[in-house]
Computed example of a mutant assay.
Amino acid sequence: MKTIDHTLLYLRESLSNYEGNELSQSIHQKLQNKNYQSEREFVEDLDDREMQYLDKILAREISYAENVQDDMRVQQLREVYEIIF
């Protein structure tokens, strides 16, 4: 059975809001098909384009989570964001 880091579950859920984008689909596929043990392992598997795309998406998603006062989502998404940059 696959286990996935809870932070990556939040990321996968956020990416589902951008299903029409090719990079979003690519990243979502990685999360779906690979068994990452940590956020760092996931980030190391991203290419430069995917990282740039996540930079934009995560900033938007973190801002949204802050606006609706979803502190857990903010924390989880920031964990990935901080590893990328």
Rank of each mutant, 00 (worst) to 15 (best):
S16D: 12
R40V: 06
E19Q: 12
S14Q: 08
M51H: 02
L11R: 01
N21K: 13
Y64M: 08
N21I: 03
Y64P: 05
E19C: 04
L23E: 12
R12W: 11
Y81M: 14
E22D: 03
S16Q: 15
L77H: 06
H28K: 14
K34D: 03
D47C: 01
L46T: 00
L46G: 00
N67A: 13
M51Y: 01
R73F: 10
N17V: 04
E61R: 03
N35L: 06
D71H: 09
L58A: 04
L54G: 03
I27L: 12
K34V: 03
S38H: 06
Y10Q: 09
L31G: 00
H6E: 12
Y53S: 04
N21M: 08
F42S: 00
L54Y: 04
K34W: 07
E44H: 13
Y64G: 04
N67P: 05
F42L: 02
E41L: 00
Q25D: 11
S24M: 07
L54H: 01
Q75Y: 14
L58C: 00
E82T: 07
D55R: 06
Q29S: 10
H28Y: 07
S16E: 15
E82D: 15
R40G: 01
S24N: 12
N33S: 05
N35T: 11
I62A: 01
V43A: 05
A65M: 12
S24R: 09
K34H: 06
Q29K: 03
L77A: 10
D5H: 12
F85H: 15
E22Y: 13
H6P: 14
S26A: 08
K2I: 09
L8V: 03
R78H: 14
I84Y: 10
E82Y: 12
N21P: 10
L46D: 00
S26Q: 05
M51L: 05
K2Y: 11
E13G: 00
D45L: 08
F42G: 01
E50D: 06
D71E: 12
E22I: 08
L9Y: 07
K34I: 01
N33I: 02
L23W: 07
R73I: 04
Q69F: 11
R73D: 11
I83W: 13
D55W: 00
Y81F: 14
Y10L: 14
N33P: 10
V80A: 12
D45S: 10
T7Y: 11
Y18F: 15
D71S: 14
L15G: 04
A59Q: 13
R40S: 15
S14E: 02
N67I: 08
V68R: 09
R49W: 05
F42V: 00
H6Q: 12
A65W: 04
F85M: 10
S16T: 09
K30L: 07
D55H: 02
